[in-house]
Design a protein around this nucleic acid. Sequence first.
DNA 1: ATTGAAAGAGTCTCAGT
DNA 2: ACTGAGACTCTTTCAAT
Lengths: 158, 158
Amino acid sequence: MSAKLNLDKLDYQIIQEMMEDAEISYADLGKKLFVSGGTIHVRIKKLEELKVVKGKKLSVDLKALGYDVIAFIGVYLEKSSLYDTVAKELKKIPQIVRLNYTTGNYSMFAEIVCKDIQELRYVLHDELQKIKGIERTETFISLEESLDRNVVVLPENC
Amino acid sequence: MSAKLNLDKLDYQIIQEMMEDAEISYADLGKKLFVSGGTIHVRIKKLEELKVVKGKKLSVDLKALGYDVIAFIGVYLEKSSLYDTVAKELKKIPQIVRLNYTTGNYSMFAEIVCKDIQELRYVLHDELQKIKGIERTETFISLEESLDRNVVVLPENC
DNA sequence: ATTGAAAGAGTCTCAGT
DNA sequence: ACTGAGACTCTTTCAAT
């Protein structure tokens, strides 16, 4: 499925280090990995061209901004062939931040971020119920996020 | 729940713009929002001190790196009071990247990233079954991620 | 491919408003 | 609080290896 990439140990080390600290400078990262800053630069450009590294994302504290409710929604479809049309409708709801087509009980799995329970209730009741093709939904409100991290991408090396 | 922050329109605009493009320079962002680069700098430092902005994260294409399997795991606990001890064990499994304590059918909700189905099977069968307190689990393998975006943080303004 | 140095661009500080 | 300019740091390019 995934194309041959031929990444070496240094490539993986760069990705791993930058997943832990995306703001480290090329010079400092070079020191840490015993190569020059120029080499780090060349490798990162290569990884960006290969679309392995997609860029940087701002990390914000949603709770601090007043988004107190994170919830997961399991969606049952009337027919699984309705996935594309239902997905298109769900994407129009700005509170829905993630959507996966899944195996198992639910046809699709959504993640939603809201300011409060009232807003969640509004989206679940007024927005989702309007969408044709959704049989029913099950909502799991997050009471606590205990973990949110990156996968470890170092293989046998290092 | 969330403390009084007193962010103004410019603060929200900066966060919104940087969520869409985390790598824009202060000068360019200033031009876009009709203030100087120095003002953008001051505001971002303030937002970092307030812990609203937590920094930047490297965005990588897991599929390109050979992590072909993303799955969600609903965990049923024998007693919900076992959450902390089970969470501690789950955190030891590097493939588990996210963990939430939830309301609803499941006591907890995990997200897992694996290289292939064999690795997923290994974690589900060999690692999870070892953990005391887990009654059973339900796994939803993602066949397609249709959406992964940030919430829109602009209130009445703009 | 990697290096080191020079050029260019960005961040950070600060005095003035 | 915002600005603009100077100091500093980082990224980017490139000739040499």
